[in-house]
Design a protein around this nucleic acid. Structure first.
Lengths: 176, 176
DNA sequence: CGCGGATCGTTACACTGTAACAGGCAGGGT
DNA sequence: ACCCTGCCTGTTACAGTGTAACGATCCGCG
């Protein structure tokens, strides 16, 4: 299908220079430390799932991941991927993009309390993860005022990323 | 305000504690004015769909709506409901809760630019919609700083609503 | 060795959403 | 009156997303 839009010149915040191997290695290292510390199992399937998600520059569906993990003789079922993704999201290594039913690598080593803001570009399909203390604060204030005790937060903004603005339509994925 | 407060019983469809007939009538009236003004058709299916969503005190899936709209001799297919929901969401009469694949009535007559914050209670399943200028502002600031041009915003907070806190577990819906 | 716990493979199934085509109904122009 | 057009709805079929349940395997532990 669509080879993720060659957004050409990456002016925006895709990480230092594309989500590639560098970030992947970082994430895997983080996962290994985490598993070590907490006595969890960072199995081959979980590692490979994390790698696949980390090396893609856009959100991947569970079935896409399953496909990428499958080899001619060795099919990986989606349900296995879901289980691996459960593990990875529980420990903050990947995030689920609710508005897309898809998953992206975590680009921050954020602390448990912090919550991310996802900027999803409609043109090139990239997702950027940012953290803003200011947004946290105003959210906290609003929640406290409403007497609501938050457990998890989802903030997803769809629009056009900096790189795609004013350049016709960049990589052009069909909007979903 | 609206105490979904009598969660004491079984966390389902309380009639009038904020989500009941009163809101329904308001919403329908708003829809009729809107259709009048813009030359749109507020058909029976669309009205009934809106009513069903408005009278439920929690997010409803499209198939649930279809079921409620169906009568022994007259089945309403989910696809028709989806089309009605498209209309209703496009014009701000209902909102989609992305994290639940479900729909709630719009509790504000918000202006087009404003975006809502949804507070979703894990215990009783109720959804409260609030608007905070402060959150808007901090979001806008963060987006501007990232050079990102927003088109739509999703802010959904899961947690425990005020009414459910400290009362054991309120109405207790099985978590989804 | 036997037991318990966690992981993973496999199947089956439920839920969510869309594409495509056909019929009905209203309004507009001739 | 007619046809034409656009919109809405019904229907079928299907794609995509997610979970339940059962069994097999592996591993650490008493």
């Amino acid at each position: 299908m669509d080879e993720h839009g060659t957004c050409g010149h990456h002016g925006h915040a895709h990480g230092r220079d594309g989500h590639g191997p560098a970030r992947t290695a970082d994430l895997v290292a983080r996962a290994e430390r985490l598993a070590q510390d907490l006595g969890l199992q960072f199995t081959a399937l979980r590692r490979r799932t994390l790698e696949v998600v980390a090396e893609e520059g856009r959100p991947l569906g569970a079935y896409d991941i399953a496909e990428r993990l499958s080899a001619p003789g060795k099919r990986v079922a989606a349900v296995s991927v879901y289980r691996a993704l459960d593990f990875l999201t529980e420990h903050g290594l990947v995030h689920r993009i609710a508005s897309r039913n898809a998953f992206v690598p975590c680009e921050h080593g954020h602390g448990a309390g912090e919550s991310a803001v996802f900027l999803i570009c409609r043109s090139c399909g990239s997702v950027d993860e940012t953290i803003s203390a200011e947004i946290e604060r105003s959210l906290d204030r609003t929640l406290a005022q409403a007497g609501f005790k938050p457990a998890s937060r989802i903030v997803e903004i769809e629009g056009e990323c900096g790189a795609c603005q004013g350049r016709g339509e960049c990589g052009r994925l069909e909007p979903r």
